[in-house]
Every structure is written in C-alpha cells, then in structure tokens.
C-alpha cells in the first residue's frame, strides 16, 4: 500500500490540517482529528459548517485541497496529494458510509443490496449470504431479505443501508446525518441500532443533529462551525459546560 507509513499511532483515522474550498468558498479550514479504535465521535454544528464535507473528504467523495488523511497510520492523502487509484480502492475497504438519503439500490432486493459488494470483492457466496442474514437479524429486519427498498419504511431502509455498509466488515463506519430524512417516529429505531453498534465497540464517526443521542453514545463530541473545529471533548464537557461562546449559542438555540 502507501509507502509512507507512520507507526507510533493507534488511530484508525487521522486527519491533519485538512482544507477544502468550493471555488472561493472555504468549507474546511485546517481540520485535524483522530479517531481511536472502538470510539464513537459525533460531529455537531449548524448547516454549512462543513460537517458533511469533512465526512465526504474522509471517504474520498470530495477531493481535499490540502492536508493529510491516514487510515491505520497509512497515508491515503499526504499534503493534498492522493494515493494511487489502486491504493485508494484498498483504503475504501476500510470504511463504510451511511448516507442521509440511504441511497439503497431500488432495483435490488434487500439481500442483493447487502451482498453484491462483498461478492464483487470475491468473497464466498454462502458466507456472504449467511453474514447478510445475521446482519439483517441484528438490524431487526428478519424476513425482509426479499423485499425491495420501496416496500420498506424510511427507518427500515436506513437499517438496510447500515447492514449494507457493515457487510464489507469496515474498520470504521461514517454516518452522514443518518436520521435527518426520517420522521421523528422512525428516528429512534435507527439510533437504537447505532447505539447497539457502539456497545459492540464499532468505531464510528457520526454527523448528527440528534443532541441527546450524541451526548449519550459518543466518546467525543466535535462542534464545528465555519469550517473549523470550535470545540471538542468529552460529551458531558461539551454539552454540560461548553467553553466557547459559539458552542453555547448553538446549543442554546437547539434547546429552544
């Protein structure tokens, strides 16, 4: 893989001085963060603060302009220069991404949505299907393997999307506002599944507007605004005793 490695760290994901602009608009200004194995990091902040762009850069859906991205101490991006296409493909196997709008494949059954990617990666069919079934059970979707996404509720679709991401056995799972497209009623069932994964020590980075969830589940909370990390730390510290005026203001507005 990437030639330049750095071994003194145990972080699954390291982001250093990441920068991203869309034209003249600077969306990420010098963002740095580490995600340790088994940790859940929540990213909160107002719309347009760069939270989603950060996740999209970490998953290579957006191309960063500068900075480093390392997975397991290996450079995927070094000072804004990306690893080769083949190396990036290998890095992709390390993470999963759950989208706000699920992005399930509508023409595929639930089973095919979950199992096709591992099969394309050359995994054994029987094993893939068995694992998919166990994931469905874990997601509370037993018996839905032959359903099509359009036959499922939003909450069920998002849980299929989570199973689809997990099927590739990622080391880290990213969630981009996983409940923002859901009715309040359906939000709970998705959060419950994420909470369960947290209990199993799945490493996760969750961009969310669900403050009580972020407070209860995260090991660390990051508050972003205007493309910078304004404040971060223990959830009780950030939510209970925010130090920055901007954080206080944001959390106050949220409680109203």
């Amino acid at each position: 893989m990437a030639e330049t490695t750095k071994n003194e760290t145990t972080a699954i994901l390291e982001i250093r001085a990441l920068q991203k602009s869309f034209g003249a608009l600077s969306v990420l200004k010098d963002i740095s963060l580490d995600v340790e194995p088994g940790n859940v990091v929540s990213i909160i902040g107002p719309s347009g603060s760069g939270k989603s762009t950060l996740l999209r850069c970490a998953t290579f859906l957006e191309t960063a302009d500068g900075g480093d991205i390392l997975y397991d101490g290996q450079y995927a991006v070094k000072q804004g220069v990306y690893a080769s296409k083949a190396d990036l493909a290998k890095f992709r196997t390390r993470f999963g991404l759950v989208f706000q709008n699920f992005n399930l494949f509508p023409h595929y059954s639930v089973m095919k949505n979950i199992s096709e990617a591992p099969l394309l990666h050359g995994q054994d069919k029987a094993e893939v299907q068995e694992y998919a079934m166990s994931l469905l059970k874990k997601m509370g979707l037993e018996g839905k393997e032959n359903a099509y996404p359009c036959q499922l509720s939003g909450g069920q679709q998002q849980r299929v999307a989570i199973a689809r991401a997990l099927a590739l056995k990622p080391e880290i799972l990213f969630f981009d506002e996983p409940t923002s497209a859901l009715d309040p009623e359906l939000t709970g069932e998705v959060l419950k599944v994420i909470r369960q994964l947290a209990e199993e020590k799945m490493t996760m980075v969750v961009v969310t507007h669900e403050m009580p969830f972020a407070r209860a589940v995260s090991n660390r909370v990051i508050f972003m605004d205007g493309g910078v990390i304004v404040e971060q730390g223990d959830p009780e510290a950030v939510f209970g005793d925010p130090q920055q005026e901007r954080t206080k203001q944001f959390l106050r507005n949220y409680q109203r």
Binding site: T59, R92, F99
Partner: peptide
C-alpha cells in the same frame, strides 16, 4: 440521483 453513484463508489 448522484447518490446512487456515490453509494456504489464507497462500496467499491
């Protein structure tokens, strides 16, 4: 939708 391409890309 562009999300279909993105989902597929992330899944490899």
């Amino acid at each position: 939708p562009v999300g279909q391409y993105e989902a597929a890309t992330v899944l490899g």
